[in-house]
Structure formats: C-alpha cells, structure tokens
Amino acid sequence: MFPVSRSLRSDPPETTVTGMESPTGPRDRLRAWLREHLSYAVSEFTAATALVVLFIALSLASPHFLTADNLFNIGSQTAVIAIIAVAQTMIIITKGIDLSVGSVAALAGVVGAIVVRDLGFSVWEATVVAIGVGAAAGLVNGLLVASARLPPFIATLGMMSAGRGLVFIITGAVGVYSLPESFQLLGNGEIAGIPFAIVITAVVALAAGFLLSQSRFGQHVYAMGSNLEAARRAGIPVRRNLTAVYVLAGALVGLGGMVAASRVSSGQPNYGIGLELDVIAAAVIGGASLFGGQGRIAGTLIGAFLIALVRNGSVLLGINIHYQQVIVGLIIWAAVYFDQYRRRRLEARG
C-alpha cells in the first residue's frame, strides 16, 4: 500500500536503508527493490496471520469476545493505540524513538478535560487545544533532537518525566471529572454504527500514509532515517524536517490523548504509563525498523490491532495485568529480532 523506504539517489554512491551501496544497473536495482518489498510483504503477512489466528482463538476461548459491547471497546482501544503508533512510526522511520508519548497523551487529555469543565469549551475546541499541547511537546522534543542534537532517547526521556510532572501539578494528582456528556463523543460516539474513534483513526492513517508515500516531505523523512549525513549533503533541510516530524507526531499524540480521555469521560493523570511499549510494539510488528529508514502505516495498523487483542483477550481470560506486560515485551523482542534477521538476509543477497 505504502512504500517502505526511500534512498538518496543524489548522493554517490547511492545508499539504501541497509547502508549498502545499491546495484548500479536498472535490472539489479529492480531485483533489489523486489527483494526488499517482498521481505516486508512477508513481514506484514505474518503479522496479519497472527492477528487472524488470535482473533479466532479468542472467539473460541471466551463467549464474551464477539459481543457488540466488547468489539466496540476493542475498536475504541485500538484507535488510541493506532493513532499514537502512527506518530511513533514516523519518528522511528527517522531513526528516532519517543518515550514521552504516554506522558504527553495524559497531559493533552487532562488539559482538554479542564478547558471543557472550567472554561466551557466544546469538545471540538478542547480537541484543538489538546492537539496544540501535543504539538508543543513535540516541538520541544524536535528542537532538542534536531538543533541541540540530543539523542532522541534522552530528549524524549526528559519530556516523559517533565510531562508527567506537569500533569500531576495541574491536577494535584486527582482526576478531572464532572464533564458534560458531549465530552464522550470522540471516544464513545458513533457515525452510522461505526465508532467515531475508528473514523478518526482511518482519517489519520490515510493522511499519514499519503504524506509519507506521496509527498516530498515523506521522501525526506525516509532519506533522513536511511542516512542522515547523506540527506544533509543532498541539500535536505534536516533540522527543519526532523523538527516537523516531532511536531506532527506530538500533535497526533495529543489527539490520541483526547480520544482516550473521552473514552472514560475524565482526564486521568495516571493515563499512559507504559503506553510507549504498546505503540513501539505496534510499529515494529508492522515492519518499522528501529534502525531507521523503514516503516509502513498499514503495517502499524495491523500491529495496533494485534496489541489491542492481546490486551482485551488477557482481560477476558483473567490473565494478570503483569503477564500482559511480559507478553508485550516478548512481542517486541520477536519483532526486533525478525527485523535484524531480515536486514541480514537482504545484506547477504546484496
């Protein structure tokens, strides 16, 4: 559906996402392209197969799984994970990581709830505010990474701590309640029987997929993740584009935080603790490489649904929440190992 990677054709010798010199002949380039895309098709097919198998297994294991209420809940839960996982995918493509998504989502959701309760904002106005809060946090992350040149891990680790601290300061560590019924629209509303959160997710996924696959900005994003120095030498405005990626990702995290708050009709200061694990897992399951330069929105959506089913199935089957964390950790290990294995195979085949 969407291209997996971009290479810098203007930087000799031409470098692919694996860091190798690419084949020089048209036929060799075509073969390399086919091998790479076939590899990712296999990755996504494997994830999709696991999703189907898990869906069938849960249908047989629990009589409550296929109920309308539970499927509605899965859709809403998946929406939050998917929206924020799309943001994480964009950052991972640039060879970065964002550990602050949980804190920023909580901050955006709390601020959105407060402006509705205390200032009389509508849910749509509050959503714009929440997106702005996320974008502001993303701007700070982007400037620290692109201009101050801090490692993404350190920059976003600091934002994770600062964001969570701000949430507790603003709320006094108490949830924001007494919200109007209209506040639940994003998380629990429907359009023609379809959860509104799913509609939002579809719009976000389509827009992000188009941006990455069809725009010059998307080409630059893949190029920066493949080889940052080569991208700089090719004339790509690395600082501006890298900052823009973090701002855009932060805006999506803010939107996801608002949807999450809407689901429970409250702003929860503890929301999002451990959320970064779920969204990173969703991205890498879908084929995004932690080594940068690779990732597809379609694959991320598959990964998000898989993680949501793991969470939902664990609850239905009475599996301890701590075991859920173990399962997600194992999934991350497996996905990253498969990514390394795939890259080694591509390098071996030249």
Rank of each mutant, 00 (worst) to 15 (best):
P269I: 01
R232K: 14
Y222W: 04
I285W: 07
M224K: 09
N241S: 15
L255Q: 01
S262A: 06
R216Y: 12
L252H: 05
A260E: 00
S265W: 00
V247C: 07
L248M: 15
G267W: 09
L290G: 07
G286R: 02
V284E: 09
Y222N: 09
V253A: 00
A231E: 10
A230L: 02
A231M: 10
V245Y: 09
Q219H: 15
I285L: 15
A261I: 02
L255H: 01
P269A: 04
P237L: 13
R239C: 02
N227T: 09
R232G: 11
A223K: 12
L255C: 02
I273V: 14
V284K: 05
S289F: 08
A223Q: 08
Y222D: 02
A283I: 04
V247N: 12
G218V: 05
G272I: 00
A260I: 00
V284M: 03
Q219R: 15
A281T: 14
G250H: 07
G218T: 07
A249V: 04
V247E: 09
R233S: 13
R263A: 01
N270C: 01
G218M: 08
S266Y: 03
N227G: 09
N270V: 03
L228S: 11
Q219S: 14
A249Y: 08
H220E: 14
L290Q: 07
G218C: 04
Q219F: 14
G287Q: 05
G267L: 07
G274Y: 08
G267Q: 05
I285Y: 10
A281F: 07
N227Q: 14
T243V: 15
L277N: 03
P237R: 06
A282S: 14
V284C: 06
G274N: 10
G235E: 10
A244D: 10
A223H: 11
S226A: 15
L277W: 11
D278M: 11
S226K: 12
A231T: 10
S266M: 10
A281Y: 04
A249N: 07
E276R: 05
G256P: 13
A231C: 13
G256F: 04
L248C: 08
R239P: 10
V247W: 10
L290H: 07
V259F: 01
S289A: 15
G256I: 01
L275H: 03
V245E: 11
T243N: 08
M258W: 00
A231F: 07
I236A: 13
A244Y: 10
S265C: 01
V238N: 13
